[in-house]
Write a protein that binds this DNA or RNA. Structure first.
Lengths: 149, 149
DNA sequence: ATTACCTGTAACCATAATAGTTACATTAGT
DNA sequence: ACTAATGTAACTATTATGGTTACAGGTAAT
């Protein structure tokens, strides 16, 4: 029973936290404390986000900053950045099935487009949510909690 | 870079082949030859399909038969049957993030519903395709190929 | 320039899932 | 009884994940 790597969720966490901490310095240690993991692991993920052009970070200089507007970073951007799923290959399909059999020689061509459509449907949902939405939602939840305490 | 187990694709292959071979006996060895793998692996997957009520198969008796109408087996049924993804857990989310941090104490509640929506979008696509559709598509592709040869 | 600090990575580890395989107990039909 | 098929347990190799240590290399402050 597989699942998509938590690198994706952690990536969203990191980007959101950088925004909340925009007046401070978001070092890998600072971020790691919030995610509750190792700074080295955070740096690995930040490296991926950097490669995708989502953040700015420089060796020797403490802190990571967002490279784009909050509203211009979608969850799909993050999802692609952290390499959790390969394009059109969320579903793996057995290869080398027997071409002497009607099903064997046609099954791949038949199901791959369907599986691809399913994957696209998932990705479209992620494309319609930005880090700005996440930040706003966290803020709302936070205000709600305060009112109740 | 993970991907959903090919058990799903193989499950679809098996069910389709049982239909194409409905006048014959679909033993695990016969099915394995088309999938190009081991009969024991096929029996494992058939065991899952059986548990989900999609096929009928009995120890000691050769062959597996469909337990439902072709049009009454969706790809979502197969997907659920072969246990490739856990309900609401296609995406894994890091737990134990730091509750002393605004983001840490809200991130899960914020992103889990979104990820769940994305997963549902994927599953809805699978729900709208039946084994009958697959069988028809294979038949069409097959006829097309014959015309061209 | 030395120090202190941070990023970037290589290397390594434990764990878990996948796909495959062997072997065998169990069951049914002849 | 014999044959043949299913149902499973057990084991393997491979791979991804998440975590960790260690350290090279860059930057800034003193």
């Amino acid at each position: 029973m597989m699942s998509i790597s938590s690198r994706f969720a952690v990536g969203i966490h990191i980007l959101s936290l950088i925004e909340f901490n925009k007046d401070g310095i978001s070092s890998s240690e600072y971020l790691a404390e919030s995610v509750n993991t190792n700074p080295a692991l955070i740096r690995k993920i930040i490296g991926m986000l950097k490669k995708a052009g989502l953040v700015e970070v420089h060796p020797g200089i403490a802190g990571t900053k967002l490279a784009r507007q909050l509203s211009d970073i979608t969850l799909l951007d993050v999802y692609k950045a952290v390499n959790v799923v390969q394009k059109h290959e969320l579903f793996s399909v057995h290869e080398n099935s027997n071409i002497k059999c009607v099903v064997g020689r046609n099954i791949q061509d038949t199901i791959i487009p369907i599986l691809s459509t399913a994957q696209s449907a998932l990705e479209k949902v992620l494309e319609n949510v930005t880090i700005e939405d996440i930040v706003k939602d966290i803020t709302e939840k936070e205000n709600l909690d305060k009112r109740h305490s």
